[in-house]
């Protein structure tokens, strides 16, 4: 008991003030503005815990009462991707963003912005529907629905399963799209089908192409990725692989789909009716 008390006192002692510069927006289509909050930050805090403090104390640094800052988060352990935002100019998850690393000293400033490639719903909360739409576009699933039992699934070697396990870690967070110079904000849903799809769905297409049962949809996936907005719109800047928090080998996936597309094009030219 006393040990915990000492810990708490220590944390309280080491509390420092950090200026949070936050880009705010009241709703879709509304103008955005900057607000600064002075947050007492204890040791071991992360950005989310500070946002929770701001939600409870919605007063700006110059003493004006304001609305609580809105953000999205769920797992708090970097596996759901919901809390992705732009911190000090770079995209990352805010739940795993440690204050001791980003603002170690009293008086430090940290800047939070919503991702720029997705429409803002409010403040730091963005609408990532387009990513989920993209997963549908590339049929990122194993088709097993039917009226009768398909029997046991195929056997898989440890090597394949290792490769695919890595790919399956994608949490649709959007970091790879935010950092991609070929991926742009598209508010018009009708344009999604022909705007560059980005690295994550390409990598997911590979994941399911390499699944023995999932492979039956391979031609459909390639069809979607060989058209406008598909694989060829990638400019090989390779930012995606640099920023992916799951360290998914995205450029390898892009090249794998590129190769499959090459073969598919030859197959269509020489073989298909």
């Amino acid at each position: 008991m006393s040990a915990i008390a000492t810990e708490t006192t220590k944390a309280a002692e080491s509390t420092r003030t950090v200026h949070f510069r936050i880009k705010r927006c009241d709703g879709p289509g509304k103008p955005s503005r900057w607000e600064v909050f002075d947050v007492p930050v204890p040791a071991h805090a992360n950005v989310i815990s500070c946002l929770q403090w701001i939600a409870a104390n919605p007063t700006t640094a110059d003493g004006k009462a304001t609305t609580p800052v809105v953000w999205e988060s769920s797992c708090l352990e970097e596996v759901c991707g919901a809390c992705t935002m732009v911190i000090n100019g770079k995209v990352r998850q805010s739940c795993s963003c440690l204050m001791d690393e980003y603002a170690p000293n009293d008086g430090d400033t940290i800047t939070l912005e919503p991702m720029s490639k997705f429409p803002v719903i409010r403040d730091l909360w963005v609408d990532r529907s387009r990513m989920f739409d993209a997963l549908k576009r590339v049929r990122a699933w194993v088709p097993i629905d039917g009226t009768y039992s398909l029997g046991p699934g195929p056997m898989e070697g440890p090597k394949e399963s290792e490769t695919r396990y890595k790919l399956s870690e994608c949490m649709t967070c959007g970091c790879c799209l935010e950092a991609c110079p070929q991926y742009h904000l598209e508010t018009d849903e009708a344009a999604w089908a022909t705007s560059f799809i980005g690295a994550a769905p390409i990598s997911q297409a590979r994941l399911f192409n390499e699944h023995e049962t999932g492979a039956v949809l391979k031609a459909d996936r390639l069809e979607a990725l060989m058209g406008p907005g598909g694989i060829n719109d990638c400019g090989n800047a390779q930012n995606c692989v640099q920023v992916c928090p799951k360290e998914i080998p995205l450029t390898e996936s892009i090249a794998t789909i590129g190769r499959a597309a090459t073969f598919e094009a030859f197959r269509r030219f020489f073989q298909s009716r």
Partner: peptide, 15 residues
């Protein structure tokens, strides 16, 4: 023209 420039933020060699 379909590309954009973000090398200030993401100053990777590839970029």
């Amino acid at each position: 023209m379909t590309g954009s420039k973000n090398t200030q933020t993401y100053a990777y060699t590839g970029n």
